[in-house]
Design a protein around this nucleic acid. Structure first.
Length: 227
DNA sequence: GCCCAGGGGGCTC
DNA sequence: GAGCCCCATGGG
């Protein structure tokens, strides 16, 4: 399939998803720092679990890089318990705020003025920050032109025949960034819609692929147990 | 009671 | 470098 055709198809799918689900208003956070905290806390956890943890941090007036940097880790653990894996995530949060405070004096404007590639590499060196979390921070907190890939992206687009199901993160990301217009808003909305589609149609005990907006495009025959 | 959720790291081979 | 296992809570 030629490149132009792939681009058209991706935009067509984007259009279908937007028509079906509408504006997702991602990231559901009020500040850039809240996006960063949310990106860490949502690792392998549904967003509904994260909301409580962020709320606890807000109530304790700790949703701030400097304050979290100073805060005792045991207090952080207690507050973020609802988001699961709290022992590990508290350590990750500490690592991230240490990075922001020690490298950029806690100033996110300064942090996001760092060239994209350089900042991405720096984030990936922070303990607990992998490609998806780094890219979520760059796109949703920093408004950087970087496409976020997650498990749903691979699952859905491999089923649709665009990529292989064992494709590496960077290859999937490169695929989307090659074929989509280079627009932050499009990257933002497309990833959010993919997650919406994935969590609505392609997970849980009773997959609801009959209602999946992309069923007609899916190249799987027979049972649609995994879209 | 059981399964799954908006990942990532460490270990083993 | 691929394949496992672990992390832990909460909603359906």
């Amino acid at each position: 399939m030629d490149s132009e055709k792939i681009a058209d198809q991706l935009l067509e799918i984007y259009g279908l998803l937007f028509e079906k689900f509408g504006d997702q208003h991602w990231w559901p956070a009020k500040t850039q720092f809240e996006v960063i905290v949310g990106a860490v806390l949502t690792q392998f956890i549904s967003w509904s679990n994260v909301v409580k943890a962020i709320d606890n941090l807000k109530k304790s007036n700790l949703l701030d890089a400097g304050k979290l940097y100073e805060c005792d880790i045991e207090i952080i653990k207690e507050l973020i318990k609802p988001a699961g894996f709290f022992n590990r995530k508290a350590v990750i949060l500490k690592s991230v705020v240490a990075f922001v405070v020690e490298e950029f004096e806690g100033n996110l404007d300064k942090m996001f003025k760092t060239p994209l590639g350089v900042l991405r590499e720096m984030l990936l060196k922070v303990r607990g920050i992998g490609p998806e979390t780094a890219d979520s921070i760059l796109l949703y907190a920093g408004y950087k032109k970087i496409f976020v890939v997650d498990a749903y992206t691979v699952r859905i687009f491999s089923r649709l025949g665009f990529i292989k199901n064992d494709e590496k993160y960077h290859d999937v990301q490169a695929f989307f960034m090659k074929h989509l217009p280079e627009e932050v808003d499009l990257y933002n909305q497309f990833h959010a819609l993919i997650v919406k589609l994935g969590s609505d149609c392609c997970s849980g005990k009773k997959p609801k692929c009959a209602s999946c907006v992309l069923k007609s495009r899916c190249n799987e025959t027979g049972s649609h147990n995994e879209c």
